[in-house]
Structures are given as C-alpha cells and as structure tokens.
C-alpha cells in the first residue's frame, strides 16, 4: 500500500525571464515503511518537489497534478486542513539545522511547540515528551539539554534535534531534505545510523545529492534531472545495473569510480533542450534523442528508465 501517490505533478515558477519548470510531470509513489531516495544535482528541482509536497511554496507558484496522501489530494484541501497534516502526518526534516531552529527559543520548547499544537498536550506533558524525543535521538542528559539554546549545540547535535522534531508527532511520512549536509564525515555516519534506527517503521522520502547517504538508507531510488525523473528502481539496481546514461555518468564521476566527468552542465530550467533533456551531454545521443522527448519505460519489474536506448 502506498502512503503517498504523486501523479503528473508540475510546479512552475513565473519569473521575468520566463517560466521555470522546476518539477515537470513527476509520477512517484512511496509505500509504507519504505525509504525512497530522490537524487539529483543542484537545480534539478528536487528540493522544490519536497516543498511542493508540503505545500510550502509561494502562492504565485503554479502547481498541477495530484498528490494523494492516504486517499486525500493534498493540492485540493484548504490551508487549515493542510496545517493539520503538516508536522503531524507528514513531517519535514530540513537541511541546514542552524537556520531552521529558532535561535532565541530553548530547544525543548521548540520541540514541545509542535507536540502541543498537534496532540493537545498541556505544557508540562509536552515538555516531558520533548525530553523523551531528545533521548530517542541519543542526546546525552536530555532534560538538561532541553533547556539550552541552539547555539549551545554542535552541528551534529542540532541535526539530531531536527530529527527529534520531525518524529515528535509520530508522522506517517517523513521528508528529509539533505539530512546530512554540512556535517563532518564521522558525524554523518552517526546521523545515518540514527536515522536507520528511528525511522524503521516509517515511510520516508530522502532528498539528497549524496550517493553514500542514499546507498545506506534507501530501498528505492529515483534520479532526477532537469525537472523530471530519468530513472527509478530499487537501490541495488541503481548502483549495480544503472541504465540511464545520466545515472551511469553520475556514478562514474565519483572519485572512487574513476572520476569520469559528465561533459557540459545541467540545462537551465527556463530553457530546456528539445527532445531528451540530457541529449546535449549524452555520449549515446542519436537523431531521435534530439527530436523526441522520451517517456518513462519499464524495463523489468519496477525498473523505469527515460531513454530510447536503454
């Protein structure tokens, strides 16, 4: 059973230079207890997709398609109804904990705020729950730390607080946007280990450009390029039998895989190339790639690719 079913999703921003097609006709579903990785490089639209799911974009943005969460289309409900879902049903762990936490509010209070709002607990119980959450994310002496301010926490500890906050209302779905960005290598392994432990029972969408993180955490992986998905399969398939030239190029450009760069750079989302969006950078591009835009094809059970030559 899928928790979230996205179909035909489009998010466009009007700008003076033209329309930015940040998310362009995306179909995706997240099953229960599954961790789905959404991978792509800067500017491919992956963060916008996350924000679209939470309906956190400005009103000038055009959004089309459907986002079905447990039978409800999130794009059709009122703002008040959405507010009851945000944080309680679907929680988001944002990148950059330093700017996501309120610097003048005690850490415990920030976690308790959401608990009071969604679970209607009194101040004291909410505080207690917040301490419990800090303990869950393995923050030493949690009752004392709950009374401290974000600046007294290190980067890794702040990220733990963000995770605690995300888990506080026991959501069914967690969206984590670059949960390990800016963390040191050894701290990153700690956070990955923690996320594995505390989110075992939850559906999760992890947005990242870090293949190491994806490999550790995800069951299935979707690769995004220039606003659309190009490949979608189980994590093992993506790492062992990648089919799309972009996926192969992405893996091949890793230092450990030989450091073979993909020539050129990602296209602007205002001025997308005709035909396949990847064709100007693709070694295997032929005439048909220049003229026709490829659709997603299922190669074998659950492995989808957007390429004429796969």
């Amino acid at each position: 059973m899928s928790v979230l079913e996205i179909s035909n999703l489009k998010t466009y921003f009007p700008t003076p230079d033209g329309i930015v097609r940040a998310v362009d006709t995306i179909d995706l579903s997240i099953r229960e207890r599954e961790t789905l990785g959404l991978i792509g490089e800067t500017g491919c639209g992956k963060t916008v997709l996350g924000l679209t799911l939470m309906r956190l974009l400005q009103p000038t943005t055009t959004t089309e398609g459907t986002i079905i969460y447990k039978g409800t289309n999130l794009l059709k409900i009122s703002e008040a109804e959405m507010r009851r879902i945000r944080g309680k049903e679907i929680a988001m762990i944002l990148q950059n904990p330093t700017t996501s936490l309120n610097p003048v509010m005690r850490v415990g209070g920030q976690i308790a705020e959401a608990i009071r709002l969604h679970q209607g607990l009194c101040k004291r119980d909410a505080k207690e729950k917040a301490v419990e959450m800090l303990d869950l994310v393995r923050i030493p002496s949690p009752s004392q730390r709950a009374n401290e301010y974000p600046h007294e926490f290190s980067g890794g500890m702040k990220q733990r607080v963000m995770i605690a906050m995300g888990l506080a209302c026991n959501p069914s779905l967690i969206i984590a946007d670059e949960p390990t960005k800016g963390l040191d290598v050894t701290i990153k392994s700690q956070i990955i280990k923690l996320m594995k432990e505390v989110t075992k029972e939850k559906a999760m969408l992890i947005i990242t450009h870090d293949l190491g993180v994806a490999r550790e955490l995800c069951d299935r992986i979707a690769l995004m390029y220039a606003g659309e998905l190009v490949e979608y399969a189980s994590a093992d398939k993506i790492f062992e039998e990648p089919l799309h030239p972009y996926t192969r190029g992405f893996l091949g450009s890793l230092p450990r895989n030989g450091l073979v760069p993909i020539p050129g750079m990602s296209p602007s989302l205002i001025n997308l190339p005709d035909g396949c969006r990847f064709h100007p950078r693709c070694r295997h591009a032929t005439e048909v790639c220049r003229r026709k835009h490829p659709g997603m094809i299922e190669i074998e059970g659950g492995h989808f690719v957007r390429c004429f030559h796969a």
Binding site: G156, M157, V185, T186, I187, K188, S189, Q190, K193, G212
Partner: peptide, 22 residues
C-alpha cells in the same frame, strides 16, 4: 580507519561509527 569506513559507498569495509564528537 573510522574516516575510511565512513567514506565508503560500496559497503566494502565494515562501518566503524565513532561515538561522541571532537
């Protein structure tokens, strides 16, 4: 050793997750 194990993508090495922070 811990740094090396943390950097691995292919899971070839056994992960050593260090406790605590610098």
């Amino acid at each position: 050793q811990a740094l090396l194990s943390a950097a691995t993508v292919d899971g070839g090495r056994e992960q050593i997750v260090l406790e605590g922070e610098t």
